[in-house]
Design a binder for these strands. Structure first.
Lengths: 256, 256
DNA sequence: CCTTCTTTTCCGCAGAGCGAAACCACTTTC
DNA sequence: GAAAGTGGTTTCGCTCTGCGGAAAAGAAGG
């Protein structure tokens, strides 16, 4: 695109990129860190963090000598949670399922090339990673990602797959395994991913369509404790049952 | 302040004010609505909403012909939820309590003159309002607000009370009832508010201090179903028990 | 079709926001 | 103690970004 988008407000985008950087960091970040991550000048970062601090979105964590996000950021997600009918209907089922299996259950939606956890019901069985509402994963490393791709109508699915492949290629990754997972999900109705994101972590996921919106029911597991067999049978069946209560069977039946 | 804050980035603040307006609206908002609410020119709003749309924070809801927040906003709250030790420890207790009482339980923190719900565990008993993580209430109408004020050390409490009173006075409200609630909380260890925010809605709340951070355990109730007596005895005692597990007894004992 | 309302784009302009450099504050090293 | 290192803030000259009024375009309703 030769011409700059005249309607795009760069300063706003820069401020939000700081919030995003903080949202992906495990610890508070100093202005120098943020300058490195965003490529912006230190004085620009200083002004932006100052503004975000005055507005209440970040605060300085003195112990770590860096900025962290404040609870005020939760308010930006409130209507998403409060107005999501699917979440309302799915939550009791996810809670029952978590209780019955001992596993963590979650609902995820797609955001471009990532999935975002909308709700996470923690189970007794520990997964060696901190999961919470708002957490996100790249589509190719997550069962929910594969399920969400598999559920799409043909045109959309092809386009999204092309973008995912391009992204993976750009990062020097082989897309074959992911494509196989998507194909398997289309055949079996559930996606299984093991040790893709991290060793020891996997997931089983089933897509659901509700009011024209796609989402994925998913169970992240510790692969050291839960066998692939269990994922493909017990857990998959349980998820499919819930999905069937919430919406039409996905992916739509199709010749192999 | 005579001199403008040279380090404050107005464009960023304007964009965020749009996200905030949407976070407080029950339905999608058009650019005209947003222009009225923020006082900015329509063309400015159009550019800002365009930018937020490109970045993925809002989308146009065609059915309602207005913008709404996307799940991407949840990611900004993720580290708050993932890193909050108090939430981690409180959640199982809140869940047990919700199950035992049938009521909704929640954890709230303060954000200037508001409280923000960090976690909401829905119970069987319905409260005629949609509660969710990220929801917020003004301090004077919420039990959690009174509890959070009551728990503060003297200096901080006086300063915050002065600000709350000034705000209430500016809005033509009488602060006496709120001050009484705070005083009662300091005496009893729990704050009870009924029908202040809305008729039919009330709350019982107990403050907790954890790692130098104040929070409030709270149970919102339907005042038509739950008596003040039950709130002050059964529910208050249950909350105090949980608070005692999580941190020191609050408010600190003090001569009346 | 016309009218009305809403939104987007255009465009002149000034000041907002930029980044390099200077300055500041604190810590570490010698 | 002085000097160097580290991280952050403020200044300041400058330009181009973002502004808002006006015009154009789009959408909805009759």
């Amino acid at each position: 695109m030769a011409d700059r988008d005249r309607q795009y407000v760069e300063s706003l985008a820069r401020g939000l990129s700081i919030l995003e950087s903080l949202s992906r960091s495990q610890k508070p970040l100093g202005n120098g860190d943020l300058a490195k991550m965003t490529g912006l000048a230190a004085s620009t970062i200083s002004r932006l963090t100052h503004t975000l601090t005055v507005l209440g979105y970040i605060r300085l964590n003195r112990a770590y000598r860096g900025y962290e996000l404040t609870p005020k950021n939760l308010t930006l997600g409130y209507p998403v949670l409060a107005e999501m009918r699917l979440l309302e209907q799915a939550r009791p089922h996810l809670e029952r399922l978590s209780h019955a299996t001992g596993e963590t259950t979650a609902l995820a939606v797609r955001d471009k090339l990532h999935i975002i956890f909308v709700a996470v019901i923690e189970g007794e069985n520990l997964v060696a990673v901190r999961l919470a509402t708002g957490g996100r994963l790249r589509i190719p490393v997550s069962a929910a990602g594969a399920a969400l791709v598999a559920a799409l109508p043909e045109d959309e699915r092809r386009m999204l797959l092309a973008r995912v492949r391009a992204d993976m290629t750009r990062n020097g990754q082989d897309a074959k395994s992911f494509l196989d997972t998507v194909a398997a999900c289309r055949r079996d109705g559930a996606a299984v991913v093991r040790n893709k994101w991290r060793t020891g972590i996997g997931g089983i996921s089933v897509p659901v369509l509700h009011n024209g919106e796609y989402a994925a029911l998913t169970i992240p597991v510790a692969t050291g404790s839960v066998s692939e067999e269990t994922m493909r049978t017990t857990l998959a069946d349980a998820l499919k049952e819930v999905a069937g209560i919430l919406g039409p069977v996905l992916p739509p039946p199709e010749a192999p």
